[in-house]
Design a protein around this nucleic acid. Structure first.
Length: 491
RNA sequence: GCGACGGUCGUCCAGUUUGGUCUAGGACAUCAGAUUGCCAAUCUGGUAACCCGGGUUCAAAUCCCGGCCGUCGCACCA
């Protein structure tokens, strides 16, 4: 079983990801870049997401801006709810969430939206001191996790979006009208989001700038169990856990509804699509769960929430937040923008403000988890490191290796390479021993290596070596294309 | 953001205690050549690093200060 350090080492050595601005000593934490292999794999991950979620369910994909006006975040609640009151000890510098600390110590109810002055007053009244050093607290200040941006010469207030979905909400009305939408309608988006985390940590797992793949399903709240396509997934297994993770119930989607574990068909349907998607990424879904969040854990906009979590070497890792956001967002944007965001449900010609169920996926965390779950040390063969990536996620699909360069094998291999390289991710390598070249390819997860030898010169066949088994078979050059194509389609 | 510990070739490590032979060493990786010709072989040669900035000193990888980053703990995680 791989651990975080081994994955990290592989990522650095093989160009999956590495720290941003690393040649400068003032490079801030929480920013990482994808290298050649990483970006290739990420693109393929997104393509799989498109195939298995967006196309499968007939969703519409948009690509919105990362900088959005202040009003958006007034409406979304991020400017109000996303600012935490913080107080700092003047002596030892320890910082605390003011509202939580006071409530815990005094039982007084301190809302996040209480003014700084009022909170200061409560601190004075109870004569609260720093629990670490008994020092005095300074006055309360605010910490907002959003990055503020000044637009144009006037520095007009705007923000980098803290979640991609806000562009979906503000675009919803136009997309629905112009694309002839019908509820329930999924609107999807891949892009970057930005959060000024206090303590970014563990490379791809908690970033300040990160990729999300979000799906917002707009639905008629009165028809959450009216979903014929639920039949497609009714037998799909869902693993649902209590909020503390103490027990996991494994049931079909159908049964999960009957047992009351999932509130309705719409939610069950999308959880099922999600788990079917993750199964195809190569993540071990037996080590996953949909954890039902308690009221305290839920985001401010969510009424029902499941976190899709996967077990990794550093514990359970949240990959997707599945929130039933009700009409929180559209209502907020409707009232702040003074636009009517209701739509007509053609089935009964009634107007309705759609509710939203979202699948908010962390791409970077998913990439990390795939790497960790696919990392394999083969003890049978000198502890060779193999990334058992699915062919359709592998940065290199096939390595093309002449056994040696003389006797025309090099030319022959380059010819085969040029016939394949436009349609497949290939890697040509003629340097060093054949064994070394095989091992290098395994480390970036290449499922196949084809070797050109003397026999090739006689009968136009090559050996195809399979990454996981190291088995080889002899294949006609003319059949390579079909073989590779089949591997990509296999799911 | 606080505290503890740490930061040397792509990776891992030696050197720091006691400043001087460090013009920074090794292993693996990588590149070139030779050799072999189906599983990290061998030989030869090469590329390649003291996190950044200041200070102390005749002399700093080594000591001091500040910053940045990392790991862990606390806190945080819409």
């Amino acid at each position: 079983m791989a651990n975080y350090e081994e994955v990290m080492k592989l990522a650095l050595e093989r160009g999956f990801y590495f720290p941003s601005c690393e040649i400068y000593s003032d490079a801030p934490a929480g920013f990482w870049e994808y290298g050649p292999t990483g970006v290739n794999m990420k693109n393929k991950f997104i393509e799989l997401w498109r195939r298995e979620l967006v196309r499968r369910d007939g969703m519409m994909e948009i690509d919105g801006c990362q900088i959005m006006s202040k009003s958006v975040f007034v409406a979304s609640g991020h400017l109000g709810n996303f600012t935490d009151p913080i107080m700092k000890c003047t002596k030892c510098g320890s910082t605390f969430r003011a509202d939580r600390y006071i409530t815990e110590k005094t039982g007084e109810n301190v809302g996040e939206r209480m003014s700084n002055e009022d909170i200061d007053a409560i601190v004075k009244k109870h004569n609260l001191k720093c629990p670490n050093c008994k020092g005095e607290f300074g006055s309360v200040s605010r910490f907002n996790m959003m990055f503020r941006i000044g637009i144009g010469p006037a520095g007009e207030e705007a923000y980098l979006r803290p979640e991609t979905c806000q562009t979906i909400f503000v675009d919803f009305s136009r997309v629905f009208k112009t694309m002839r939408g019908r509820l329930p309608l999924g609107v999807a988006q891949v892009g970057k989001s930005f959060r000024n985390e206090i303590a970014p940590r563990q490379s791809l797992l908690r970033l300040r700038e990160f990729y999300q793949a979000e799906i917002e399903v707009f639905c008629n709240p009165n028809k959450l169990d009216d979903l014929p396509r639920f039949e497609e997934v009714k037998n799909t297994t869902l693993r649902i856990s209590t909020h503390d993770g103490s027990s996991i119930t494994e049931t079909t989607a159908d049964e999960a509804i009957r047992k009351g574990l999932v509130p309705n068909k719409l939610v069950a349907y999308y959880l099922a699509l999600l788990i079917e998607f993750y199964e195809k990424t190569g993540i071990d879904v037996k080590r996953s769960r949909f954890r039902k969040l308690s009221d305290e854990e839920k985001a401010f906009y969510a009424t029902v929430a499941f976190d899709f979590e996967v077990e990794t070497s550093i514990g359970w890792l949240e990959l997707v937040a599945c929130n039933y956001r009700s009409d929180y967002d559209l209502k907020g944007h409707a009232s702040t923008s003074k636009q009517n965001l209701e739509v007509v449900d053609p089935a009964d010609q009634t107007k309705v403000l759609p509710h939203v169920f979202e699948l908010s996926m962390g791409i970077d965390r998913s990439i990390y988890t795939i790497l960790e779950h696919c990392y394999y040390e083969d003890e049978q063969h000198d502890d060779r490191v193999v990334l058992k990536l699915k062919p359709f996620l592998a940065p290199v699909l096939v390595g093309i290796l002449p056994l040696m360069t003389k006797d025309g094998l090099g030319e022959k291999a380059r010819k085969i390479h040029s016939e394949l390289k436009l349609d497949f991710d290939t890697f040509y390598d003629e340097s060093g021993s054949i064994g070394r070249r095989y091992r290098r390819l395994e480390e970036v997860g290449a499922p196949f290596a084809i070797t050109i030898d003397q026999t090739t010169m006689q009968d136009d066949t090559v050996t195809v070596r399979h990454r996981d088994t190291m088995q080889q078979e002899r294949v006609k050059v003319s059949e390579l294309r079909q073989l590779l194509q089949n591997a990509l389609v296999q799911r």
